[in-house]
Design a protein around this nucleic acid. Structure first.
Lengths: 208, 208, 208, 208
DNA sequence: TATGAATGAGCGTTCATTCAT
DNA sequence: GATGAATGAACGCTCATTCAT
């Protein structure tokens, strides 16, 4: 069950450390970072309270590892070599949104931690995660700006549309359930269509 | 500063109780429910730690009051008598989205608590708040289903579109800043256009 | 109900002060001095928390008033002009024990406070109450020593017998219930007989 | 000092847990259950406030352990194989009273907690302790009823006499001091004689 | 006289973390 | 590597008491 969580940790970590991270993800997602005790985490991995400190120097470091590896995994997912024609902005946007959304749906538990629990990080670690996070709007901006430039997309406010598309992908971690009607890929395709519609319609009547 | 928060509390509460709720909103939004101490709340209102308990029986009740009054305020905001022509689904959808988004932007601090901190409630209170929350998708569903039925909107998957529109309005509490480029109303109009475009475009190629 | 408690307070106290003392007696007896809050006391008299301080300067003073008036009442009860023949030590002992026991049974709620809650007093007040308490063994000692001297009683160890008789009268506050089989007077007569038997039998085989 | 307290805890408890129980006994006896703080208990054992919770889940459980082990110890003390001739009710009563009294005198500090602080227990624990407590009057009733039946004792009201004998043994925890004139065994022998005299004298004149 | 609001001190308990084993 | 015991620093909450009204 919930094998998706374990996929996020690399082979560089000891199995026990990976089990602790997986337990922590489940705890943080369910009760939040401050609402989770170190006993919850180690207990969820079948270990004693002190065991956590054999593998991580502090609770905050556990969150940081989750955030770092989670964000890298998401970035890698959207940066996979694409199948779309580079000269087809709509196809590229569709692929990008589908991947972004599918990753968040598949990893909705870990993603909830990555999106909502960063306040538990030290400011140094926030900075480090923020550097990765900046890449996501960048990817969307590139594709959309391309399409607008080529005249394929409506001349939208790129920043606003990027925010909207990101919101669709992120907010689903709040409500997505794997036993619901949509698989991660189905939801990805649906949101991909919505994204394209956002840059295809006639511009709205003087928004702003 | 942050006078929007105080707007949420009715005249039935003593001024000190309102000040405590406002302080609690700021604390919960910044550090989460479990990350906030009762001393934070009372201190934020310029009171001693024990003062909180003169006005509220427990920290959880403070959260509940915020959630209850916050949700009611949001519902009242979208249920205001409309200016849109009842026979114009697009106009009605635009108005509904604009109001929903503008409320969340204007009250982004309190809204963050209403959207992300409900895990701190007792299960009884969760049930009570959930009853109010169910009204929001209902409002969107009614308008969109109407438009689809009348043939004005594309025959979209209503449930999915409702989720997407709600996500746009909700996720903005994560990133909206009042000193950013958009006023609550501007953002509302922009998202209203996006919502209309979601139900107006040609249906995507076999999504799902 | 429990009108016996009200009998203990003199006319010198305002009715509200008497009601507070009665409430305090019930609370202290049920939950102990430290286990009782000032809110319990004032609430039990139908008053607000602050009302207690209109009539008493502190919670400890309430206990002190109870202890002082309670002990004086008990002493007055055994010091009532006697009906027994002064030359009949057995009759005098019987009367003394009967009165002591009956008072403790009738006032078992207040007596529980007087016997078990004195640790809540300041040391000054302990001294003051101890002065009254010394009178009780004194009364018993006088009668028993008299009987022994006159050769009417067995030559018992007076101090030990006094302790035993006091114990009988005091310990009943732990278990006496007014709806039990014995009225205060019946119990008094029974214990009076026991006391007489203690000083009448053949001395035990080398006790001590 | 006060090595008698430590005798009450079995070998099944860790030494630190036993030290905490001993400290708690001293605190509860001196200041009552509600008057004792958990810091008093752990501090009395030379430990930090949090240490108590390594060994006991709550302050109430500490009281319960004391009450359970104390009552069992007292019951075991009177249930020791007897030296008295089974056909000699007076001898058996003497032995029973002597043991009951000596236990309470020797363990007067713990006994004070067992006799006066049970109000601090949860109702479940009260029930559990009450089941043990019922055995004590049962033991006395058996012997006295036996003597009355055999015609060796005066035909007394057995229930009343049992109450009186128990009161002698219990009330001494209120006043007994080990540096007083009587050793626990001396006091036991004296009270044994008193008990026998209670069932040996001529019945009092119409008590009740 | 009576009270609602307020508070400093403290209570039972929890928690992240340490350390000897 | 793993743990049971221990702890300093809180935390949510309560309490005796005060005071303006």
């Amino acid at each position: 069950m919930a094998a998706e969580i374990d996929e996020l940790w690399g082979e560089d970590l000891a199995p026990v450390a990976r089990a602790l991270l997986s337990s922590a993800v489940r705890c943080f997602a369910a009760r939040g970072f401050t609402g989770t005790t170190t006993r919850d985490i180690s207990g969820g991995a079948g270990l004693s309270p002190a065991a956590l400190y054999v593998h991580f120097p502090a609770k905050e470091q556990v969150l940081f590892e989750i955030a770092r590896r989670g964000h890298r995994s998401a970035l890698a997912a959207i940066d996979l070599p694409g199948c779309a024609d580079p000269d087809d902005p709509a196809g590229r946007l569709r692929e990008l949104v589908a991947r972004f959304v599918a990753w968040h749906a598949r990893h909705h538990v870990a993603a909830r931690v990555c999106q909502y629990e960063l306040a538990g990080l030290t400011s140094e670690h926030v900075t480090e995660i923020a550097a990765i996070r900046r890449e996501f709007p960048e990817r969307f901006r590139a594709v959309i700006a391309d399409g607008v430039e080529q005249g394929v997309f409506t001349p939208v406010d790129v920043g606003r549309v990027v925010r909207a598309v990101l919101s669709l992908g992120i907010d689903l971690v709040r409500w997505y359930r794997p036993d619901g009607p949509d698989s991660p890929e189905q939801l990805g395709r649906f949101y991909a269509d919505l994204a394209v519609s956002m840059v295809s319609g006639v511009p709205g009547p003087a928004a702003g």
